[in-house]
Design a protein around this nucleic acid. Structure first.
Lengths: 226, 226
DNA sequence: ATACGATGTTGACGCGTTGTCAGGATTTCG
DNA sequence: CGAAATCCTGACAACGCGTCAACATCGTAT
């Protein structure tokens, strides 16, 4: 049963909705159910992943929380991995503007950019309804990490931001690849501890990370010049 | 068929090896086969994980590369995850002494410790026959990370080393939890790029990481005092 | 309005994996 | 040597996977 029908189950036999149907049915019914089905699968996936962990969930678990038949799943995704990627990329798409905003509000202030960017990331981790957040709370020891094209794109964007500041501040001896990697590593690892409650203060963590990166870069610069 | 017998297949029907058997059979035959079976499963697991990735391998894949029957697997491990944990912990056990050596050869030289420690880690990653190394080379974009008790123990050891240096150098404003997390994150992320060939020079990477951490810590200290 | 082609859904099927267990083989010990 | 303990073996039931022929629904041309 397609989810669109299920959602309309209150107005069951009203086949004829006048063309002036209240909510926009701008697209054909086909398109609508397709979107609704996809959304239903994604939402079910988000819940199940949070409950059972990535390893523990099966395609059947996901589809079972839906009103769809098992075969229908494969019209939308090839595997649970693809569902996870989609959820992950959704999160990234929500985060991306935050990073851009940090970049633009910072102007030439490297330190300001770093504080805002780390802060945005940590806040996002703790507040956004993302897969990763729920799963990090799991008692499990196993974590999965995905490098989707979207992730890599974000990393590259961050890298070019960093490079811009690095040239601005004459950090020509600092390998951008290593610097970006370090920023990501710090964000990952501190973010992880925030999610698990080993670190509490988001503000303090963001400032720590920012100062750390700033000081680290400058030290590398001066050591490499020598 | 137990692997011990298979290994002795050249001297098949020699049931009675005199008590003066050349290689030490100090323990009973039972113990020997148990160790040999376990080792065979672990070695098979290492190979298969490297070939098929963590997700892709099944318990059957592992046991099939062995002369054991499928049921026997479960006398030694509960799941493929447990095999992976064991392999992971093996690697850790090999790395631990390297970290200790770095600690002891460094004396009071914080920077020396950091360079040696990062260098040891990166060299270990690239040269040791560990599961992680093989799997990082995989075309896949899914990575798993395990926090076994052993891992956590190593992190704690590293943390206490870091704390020792931090007090020595009056870094009393630097949160040890955040500092340790940053070191681990940097090591992870740079290590990953080394494994994938995006970064080539191990020496340079180790010095970068060390200077970065040193400079970062001092900057955090001075900023937090203000 | 009706009929027909296009598109999406359904659930059962064959295949492979999982973890278990009764039966059998091997080692240990009295 | 023989009994008891140990543990290896391979078949088994349950289950997940991805596919596919049959079916239902939608878009569209008449």
């Amino acid at each position: 049963m397609q989810v669109l029908r299920a959602m309309k189950s209150t107005s069951v036999s009203l086949e004829k909705d006048k063309s002036e149907s209240p909510e926009g049915n701008q697209a054909g019914k086909r398109e609508q159910t397709k979107l609704a089905n996809r959304a239903a699968i994604l939402e079910a996936g988000r819940q199940i992943f949070a409950e059972l962990g990535y390893e523990g969930t099966t395609v059947r678990d996901i589809i079972r929380r839906t009103e769809l038949a098992s075969g229908t799943f494969y019209n939308y995704f090839k595997s649970k991995e693809e569902v996870f990627h989609a959820l992950h990329d959704d999160g990234l798409a929500r985060f991306k503007p935050l990073l851009r905003a940090a970049r633009e509000s910072a102007g030439q202030d490297f330190q300001g950019f770093m504080i805002t960017a780390f802060g945005a990331y940590f806040n996002f981790l703790l507040n956004d309804q993302s897969v990763d957040r729920e799963m990090a709370a799991m008692p499990d020891w196993t974590r999965v990490r995905f490098d989707t094209p979207e992730s890599l794109a974000l990393f590259d964007e961050l890298k070019s931001d960093i490079v811009a500041f690095a040239t601005e501040f004459n950090l020509d001896q600092v390998d951008p690849e290593l610097l970006t990697a370090s920023c990501i590593g710090i964000a990952q690892e501190i973010g992880d501890r925030l999610l698990r409650g080993r670190v509490k203060d988001i503000e303090a963590a963001a400032r720590f990370a920012a100062y750390f990166v700033l000081g680290g870069s400058q030290r590398v610069q001066s050591e490499m010049q020598a």
